[in-house]
């Protein structure tokens, strides 16, 4: 789906702080969405937690930086870190280049795979949310 110049693939699930989630077998893959990527500018640092780190739904578990901007990454589900994109350690700009592909950030082993259904999903829901976000950030929130 393309909405107001933002590319938001339909098959993905979205965490409200602008991270996407995709199911891959028993794991979830997570990365930054196109809206956040464009807002953040050139990414210069991605915190890559150790595998096995427990994450709790809605709690911050990592950070991302671009110049003076610092973004917090919140857990989309309960679970643990199963893997990280080590390429980002020396090339965080992969997020800018390909946020849905080579710029993926984390793999998560969820406690309950069903929790992913609580995230934003589907054209209608994503469009409604994104429209509100665009308006909010246009006002300088």
């Amino acid at each position: 789906m393309e909405f107001q110049s933002y590319n938001m693939p339909d098959e993905l699930y979205y965490e409200p702080n602008h991270y996407w989630v995709r199911q891959e077998g028993d794991l979830l893959v997570m990365g930054m969405d196109d809206f956040a990527r464009k807002l953040a500018g050139q990414i210069v640092f991605v915190q890559l937690p150790e595998e096995g780190k427990a994450i709790k739904l809605g709690k911050k578990f990592a950070s991302v930086e671009s110049g003076k901007w610092l973004g917090k990454v919140y857990a989309p589900v309960n679970g643990e870190i199963a893997g990280v994109n080590e390429e980002l350690e020396t090339n965080p700009g992969l997020i800018n280049q390909d946020c849905y592909g080579a710029g993926w950030m984390y793999k998560i082993k969820p406690d309950d795979l069903g929790e992913v259904q609580n995230l934003l999903h589907g054209t209608e829901a994503v469009q409604k949310w994104l429209a509100a976000e665009i308006e909010k950030f246009a006002k300088g929130a």
Binding site: Q42, V44, F45, E65, S66, G67, K68
Partner: peptide, 10 residues
Amino acid sequence: VRGAYAKNSI
């Protein structure tokens, strides 16, 4: 330099 030239800073 951290803000303006982050890559070189790192």
